[in-house]
Design a binder for these strands. Sequence first.
DNA 1: ATGTCACTTTACAAGTGA
Length: 264
Amino acid sequence: MRVITWNVNSLRSRLPRLLALLDREKPEIVCLQETKVSNGDFPTLPLVEIGYHVVANGSGGSAGVAILSRRPPEVIQLGFPGDPLHEEARVVVATVGRIRTVCVYVVNGRSLNDPTYQTKLEWLDAFTRWLTQSHDRGEALLLAGDFNVAPDDRDVHDPDAWEDSIHVSEPERARIRALLDWGLIDLLRLHSDQPGLHTWWDYRSGAFHQGRGLRIDLILATQTLADSCVDVRIDRNERRPTAGEGKPSDHAPVIADFEGTWDP
DNA sequence: ATGTCACTTTACAAGTGA
């Protein structure tokens, strides 16, 4: 069973690349962020035509999330009770097979002195409170998305240059640790402790070409699911400009493989 | 610090968010 998370930075702009990714990787579950499309304008048809179910949560703003799945999704939830930014559409939840799948797009925050930085911390607190209080660490829970936080210095191309910056500040990292302390496991770190495994590179200044990136797109899972995770990789090639399928997102997809079908 | 991208708007350029 294959799971992919990808911040597409506009689904409509990225649709040709998404269709190529689905054809290439044949994932069972896909978590998308920054779809930037309202539910009414979601390009459902080309995805249904190739065998995917679609659960979208989009308000047309700069966020928007979606879960695509081979199996029909059940117990669908848009946002979460007490979401302080409910109208921004940052969370979508669905059960696929035996896996409770939470797709998340965390507030960016822009910089430590921007008002949205506090919003980010408060939103992460509310999200984590909901997640930990309404789920069981014994269940097969998958939490995937753009966390807009690089969990530790291995996830930052130049930790000195990024010290006390947005995405790496200690209060942000403490919020990620709270999720891990509750019982979630950072699946990529099961397989590699190497630095330089980035998932996002700024469009500007040739950041991708120069390897100046961060790992902010994560797939977390509870122990029962993590036990069956056999591989996690980052599709860096998808971040490259290519002919024919339009421009790349500023994020690369993260791809996790699990043993077994996880059918009910 | 910033050389990009995609979206929006009383829309054909400029502001916003990332």
